[in-house]
Simulated scan of single mutants.
Amino acid sequence: MRVSINITRYSWPDGPERLGAELERIVRLADQTGLDTVWVSDHLLQADPTSTLDAEMLEAYTTLGFLAAHTRRVRLGTMVTAATFRPPALLVKAVTTLDVLSGGRAWLGIGTGHHQGEADAMGLPLPPLPERFERLEETLRIAARMWANDTSPFEGRHFRLGGPVNSPQPLRRPHPPVLIGGMGEQKTLRLVALHADACNLFDIPDGGRTIRHKLGVLARHCEDVGRPYGEIEKTVSARLGETESADGFAERCAAFAELGLDHVVVITNGPWTEDAVARLAEAADRVRTA
């Protein structure tokens, strides 16, 4: 069972002047423990439902570059980028750059996007959902071609690339792992089966019923497209309680593993603290040695 942190909040008490130092302190601690990945949200406005739109939010790929410079081991990625935020070649280039400069530690975390208020406020494209799925699939196809060093023209419904050169190629071969966020049964999980290395589900308090069902749907899609189900890393997003003990969270991780999940991506109600990272790392150690 892999355990990771997802940084969604940047409102540390000392304000923007100390934000870089606080972020560095948290990610260095994560890097020194057994945590697997440091994820960041890809938003321009704060989207955490426990916060407010005008709270501090950093641009994702600039932040990941900062994290790469202050870590040596943990993997790095977005949870998750909206496929409409950036032109596909720019996104692939950003992930490739992160991978090269971090020594092969980048993920491509991607989804359709959902935050209409953010899109309206910041002038970001957020077309109707069917078109977002079309753009997501084309972006995944473009990423696969660019990472395969295929420079031939791409002609899609939404994107046309005359000759997408991607140099240097990523260090992670055959390419940085691709995670698709979302639980939609007809389109999202089918795209996972077709194009992704990992899915991301949500921790819903129903005794595991929803997760079992979604994983069953994913398994059927894998069978339909001829993809081994075991190739896909099954991740789940969960929240660490403010007073939750390492033992308590380790028990939750064990329950996730029984459901067939491989990787827990953890958020907190506020900014990450050293205590919260330490409790999570202790829980991860206990899961590994159980």
Score class of each variant (00 low, 15 high):
226 G>T: 09
124 L>C: 11
40 V>M: 00
226 G>C: 05
229 Y>M: 06
16 P>C: 05
78 T>S: 06
138 E>V: 02
100 V>M: 07
113 G>R: 00
275 D>F: 10
70 H>T: 08
193 A>T: 05
30 A>H: 04
197 D>T: 03
252 R>Q: 14
55 A>W: 12
62 T>C: 09
181 G>D: 00
148 A>C: 02
264 V>L: 07
184 G>K: 12
267 I>D: 13
178 V>R: 07
20 G>P: 00
8 T>D: 14
21 A>F: 11
130 P>S: 07
75 R>G: 07
46 Q>V: 01
175 H>T: 09
56 E>A: 15
78 T>H: 04
37 T>L: 06
143 A>R: 07
184 G>W: 07
235 T>H: 10
220 R>G: 11
15 G>L: 07
239 R>V: 15
287 V>E: 09
2 R>C: 08
192 V>M: 03
248 G>H: 00
184 G>H: 03
79 M>H: 13
201 L>V: 08
177 P>E: 01
185 E>M: 09
83 A>N: 07
14 D>V: 09
152 S>F: 00
132 R>I: 05
111 G>D: 01
223 E>F: 04
88 P>G: 10
99 D>P: 05
153 P>M: 01
106 A>E: 11
23 L>N: 10
237 S>G: 13
198 A>N: 07
10 Y>L: 10
246 A>C: 06
210 T>L: 15
160 R>A: 14
265 V>S: 13
78 T>L: 02
26 I>Q: 00
57 M>Y: 04
239 R>I: 14
259 L>T: 05
279 R>P: 04
214 K>P: 02
140 L>Y: 02
113 G>V: 01
46 Q>C: 12
83 A>T: 13
219 A>L: 05
222 C>H: 08
146 M>H: 03
22 E>K: 12
229 Y>N: 07
63 T>S: 07
51 S>H: 12
72 R>A: 12
206 D>W: 10
73 R>S: 15
104 G>Y: 03
72 R>K: 14
89 A>F: 00
224 D>Q: 15
204 I>T: 15
4 S>Q: 01
253 C>G: 15
185 E>A: 13
83 A>L: 02
272 W>Q: 02
50 T>M: 12
185 E>Q: 15
